[in-house]
């Protein structure tokens, strides 16, 4: 029994078709003071001019440390947060210009999977109610058809249909994550923001969920924006990877290219910081000094210059643009010129 589950997308993907275009996205959270007449005393520049595009069936990995603005970016794209400025085009529609009702209708097509499998499910709703909810919101009525659809979704994500009657607390973290995925798939979305979907799971469960996400992508022709801080997982699942630092994308490239030839000093540091499960690997490690500065008053010029081992005067003054240094490989660093792109920046 297969109801119309998958859009026939997977079959038709030949020519890469752009599904999402994000341009110069900015989100400033105002910091206010005062009780009655609150006035703005500053702002957290969570996302500070982010642009990227995504082709159908592709996975863009978005990596960064806490405070990099990666999760905020995911929410801005879905307009779960209102951007301060910028534009988001989803399948030719200007998402930010949509009025409330139209936006609601579009929500089924762009979904989100959350990090915390405990917080993402309403503890007072059964699995059936949780997975059926998006369908109910979008006009379906309770009945045998709806039950069948929920059952189908549960089986799609590797749960059994008798799970439908249970409450979230009866499930393990990995199973809850599956429930969240089933809910996100209910309305046949084409694009899913995966916000650290495996970070809160145990190692042996992570792989199960990563595999599930990959299978679903293949089967349903999904496009992912995969947000994570674990570069290993991102490397595994992504087709392209973008690295964020303090609200900006500092480097974006095809996966193989980025991991083989990281150009931005931050990307290099990030890659070298990961402990490798191979004793005596003895790699050259770039240990960054200091910590990520506050996004309330980010450093002038290149946001990374305060920690960059290669920073020169120009970095403090001028904000480097994200420019193409090799085909499909963009980096935002003054020291990475298209001609030097082979080596990347060298120490002074």
């Amino acid at each position: 029994m297969s109801a119309a589950a998958a859009p026939a997308a997977a079959a038709t993907v030949k020519e890469p078709r752009e599904i999402l275009r994000v341009e110069n996205l900015v989100k400033h959270f105002p910091i206010t003071a005062g009780m009655f007449l609150s006035r703005e005393v500053g702002s957290v520049r969570a996302v500070d001019g982010v642009s990227f595009e995504l082709n159908e069936g592709e996975t863009l990995g978005l990596v960064g440390e806490s405070g990099s603005g990666k999760s905020t970016t995911g929410r801005l794209v879905l307009r779960l947060l209102e951007p301060t400025s910028g534009s988001v085009q989803f399948d030719g529609q200007d998402v930010l210009a949509l009025e409330e009702a139209k936006l609601r209708a579009l929500r089924g097509k762009m979904q989100i999977i959350f990090q915390d499998p405990y917080g993402a499910l309403n503890p007072r709703k059964t699995v059936l109610e949780t997975v059926a909810e998006p369908l109910l919101i979008h006009g379906r009525r309770w009945g045998p058809e709806l039950h069948a659809r929920v059952r189908e979704l549960l089986e799609l994500v590797g749960l059994a249909s008798y799970h439908a009657d249970r409450y979230p607390h009866e499930f393990s973290g990995g199973q809850r994550q599956r429930i969240g995925i089933a809910r996100a798939l209910a309305l046949n979305p084409r694009f899913i923001v995966c916000d650290e979907p495996v970070s809160a799971l145990d190692v042996s469960i992570q792989a199960q969920i990563v595999n599930l996400l990959q299978d679903l992508q293949e089967e349903l022709g999904l496009t992912y924006l995969f947000i994570a801080h674990d570069l290993g997982v991102v490397k595994h699942i992504s087709t392209r990877v973008a690295v964020m630092y303090l609200g900006r994308i500092v480097e974006i490239a095809d996966k193989a290219e980025l991991y083989a030839r990281p150009l931005h000093p931050y990307t290099r540091a990030l890659l070298s910081a990961i402990p490798v499960p191979r004793p005596g690997a003895g790699r050259e490690r770039v240990i960054l000094q200091g910590e990520v500065p506050s996004p309330i008053n980010p450093p002038s010029g290149c946001h990374f210059h305060t920690r960059c081992p290669f920073a020169v005067a120009e970095c403090r003054a001028v904000d480097p643009p994200l420019r193409e240094v090799a085909p499909g490989h963009k980096a935002a660093c003054h020291l990475v010129q298209p001609q030097t792109a082979q080596e990347g920046p060298r120490g002074p």
Binding site: R75, L78, L80, L103, R104, A105, L106, R107, G108, Q111, I112, F114, Q115, D116, G119, A120, L121, N122, P123, R124, K125, E133, P134, I137, H138, G180, R183, L187
Partner: peptide, 26 residues
């Protein structure tokens, strides 16, 4: 602030539905 409330918004739920189904019962 719970993620299931955000999930409901992401599905296109109305404010009323979010309050009634997700916030008040909890």
């Amino acid at each position: 602030e719970m993620e299931y409330v955000e999930a409901a918004r992401a599905m296109g739920a109305t404010h009323w539905r979010i309050i009634w189904h997700h916030i008040l019962p909890n």
